[in-house]
Computed example of a mutant assay.
Amino acid sequence: MQGLAEVTGRPVRSAWSRSGEQKSNPKADAVVCAPMTMNTANKLAADISDTYALGVIIEMVGVGVPTVALPFWSTALDAHPSTRRSVAVLREWGVRVLYGPGEWEPHEPGTGGEQLVKYPWALALSEARRLSG
């Protein structure tokens, strides 16, 4: 299995560029946020960018780069009012949240490990390709 750097031909970044440091990545055609936890969805919807990954997603939304989010949380977390509110906010911003019938649906509490095998990565990548034209 190839790693992300081998597939893209670019280094994987995990921290912001420092002042004067050359940017290593070209403009993104699209960005995928996956697996998006409830915590990530809530932080994004509240504009909290306390990690590099959150900051990149918020920045990409801000500059209009097509953004796809593929959730991963349990039905217990899904029942919390902030989850639906955060999904609605992200959709208002134009984020394509792959959530609901025919896309991704929450799993029963305690079964997350079992769900990873069938997590629909291809769905997120296909949607990112479609949105990027």
Rank of each mutant, 00 (worst) to 15 (best):
M1W: 07
Q2W: 13
G3C: 02
L4H: 05
A5F: 05
A5S: 07
T8H: 12
T8G: 06
G9R: 01
G9L: 02
G9N: 01
R10V: 06
V12D: 01
V12Q: 10
V12M: 10
V12H: 09
R13G: 00
A15I: 06
W16M: 13
S17L: 13
S17A: 15
S17Y: 14
S19N: 12
G20S: 05
E21D: 01
Q22Y: 00
Q22G: 07
Q22D: 10
Q22W: 03
S24H: 09
S24G: 14
N25T: 10
K27I: 11
A28F: 08
D29T: 04
A30E: 07
V31F: 04
V32T: 06
V32A: 08
V32L: 03
C33S: 14
C33Q: 09
A34D: 06
P35T: 15
M36R: 02
N39R: 11
A41F: 09
A41R: 05
N42T: 14
N42Y: 05
N42G: 10
N42W: 06
K43W: 03
K43N: 10
L44D: 09
A45R: 00
A46K: 06
A46R: 08
A46C: 02
I48K: 08
I48W: 04
S49T: 15
S49H: 14
D50Q: 11
T51M: 14
Y52L: 12
G55V: 11
G55D: 09
E59G: 15
V61D: 14
G62T: 05
V63Y: 09
V63S: 14
V63F: 07
V65Y: 02
P66G: 15
P66N: 15
A69H: 04
A69M: 07
A69R: 03
P71D: 08
F72H: 12
F72V: 13
W73G: 01
W73N: 03
S74E: 02
T75C: 02
T75W: 01
T75N: 04
L77I: 06
L77R: 05
A79G: 03
A79H: 03
H80Q: 12
S82D: 11
R85C: 00
R85M: 03
R85I: 02
S86E: 00
A88D: 12
A88L: 06
V89M: 09
L90T: 03
E92Y: 02
E92T: 05
W93R: 15
L98N: 10
G100I: 09
P101Y: 00
P101I: 01
E103S: 10
E103C: 04
E103L: 15
W104V: 08
P106W: 03
H107N: 03
H107I: 04
E108S: 10
P109Q: 04
G110C: 05
G110V: 07
T111K: 05
G113M: 06
E114A: 15
E114S: 14
Q115W: 03
K118V: 10
Y119P: 12
Y119M: 11
Y119T: 12
P120T: 01
W121P: 05
W121N: 13
L125C: 08
S126G: 15
S126E: 12
E127A: 13
E127R: 08
E127H: 05
R129V: 13
R129N: 12
R130L: 11
S132Q: 07
G133H: 04
